[in-house]
């Protein structure tokens, strides 16, 4: 069972229009920032990657929450990536939700009640540069999903009202980030989470 955001499948058309408008707005700027292409409040999004040249593909990254885990006091995200283009996409599944475990701060999580961003408490890893075999391919129109447990990477408390936005990037083999369509999540953490 997925806890979906307001920008779910039914809003794809709106997202596309909004993305087009935002891209047009920033067309005169050399730097097209990732946050300019999201469908969420841009002020809440960290700018983890603002690289001047983004690879244009119709990639949709959708985050959802596994409700069963949430009810039992774990925050497990289900990340779905759809390649809506006619080209194969190859991306590095590091420092993003397509790894088995969290290895970087790729989310912006805001406690809406307190109005503060939750600090990242997970690991930071210095790795060797990726080999070609480290990249993951996605055929045209193909969709992949991955679940990732973020419970121990932030301090979550019962009754917290959260907004979660992806603020990382997906890089191709030239280390250029793909343009992504993103959603945001809002939720209230149940009593199964610890009292803080």
């Amino acid at each position: 069972m997925f806890y979906r955001s307001s920008a779910g499948k039914g809003s794809v058309a709106k997202l596309a229009i909004l993305s087009f408008l935002l891209l047009t707005l920033f067309a005169c700027s050399e730097t097209v920032d990732l946050k300019a292409q999201t469908s969420v409040n841009a002020q809440d999004v960290k700018s983890n990657s603002s690289v001047s040249e983004k690879v244009s593909n119709e990639l949709v990254l959708d985050l959802a929450v596994d409700q069963e885990y949430l009810d039992s006091g774990q925050l497990v995200l289900i990340a779905t990536l759809k390649n809506g283009s006619t080209n194969e996409v190859s991306f590095l599944p590091w420092a993003n939700p397509f790894e088995k475990n969290v290895t970087a701060d790729f989310l912006t999580i805001v406690d809406l009640t307190a109005g503060v961003e939750l600090p990242y408490r997970g690991i930071m890893v210095k790795r060797m540069p990726p080999k070609p075999s480290d990249y993951q391919s996605l055929a045209p129109q193909q969709t992949i999903s991955n679940t990732i447990d973020i419970t121990s990477s932030y301090t979550f408390c019962a009754d917290q009202k959260l907004k979660i936005v992806y603020s990382g990037a997906l890089y191709n083999q030239l280390s250029k980030p793909y343009a992504l369509e993103l959603n945001s999540l809002e939720m209230v953490l149940p009593d199964a989470f610890p009292d803080c």
Partner: peptide, 20 residues
């Protein structure tokens, strides 16, 4: 500081410095 998946070596770090 952060780790940037696009800047895991000198080439990537130079590119990040230049672009952002």
């Amino acid at each position: 500081s952060d780790d940037f998946a696009s800047a895991l070596d000198q080439r990537g770090s130079r590119r990040l410095a230049s672009s952002s």
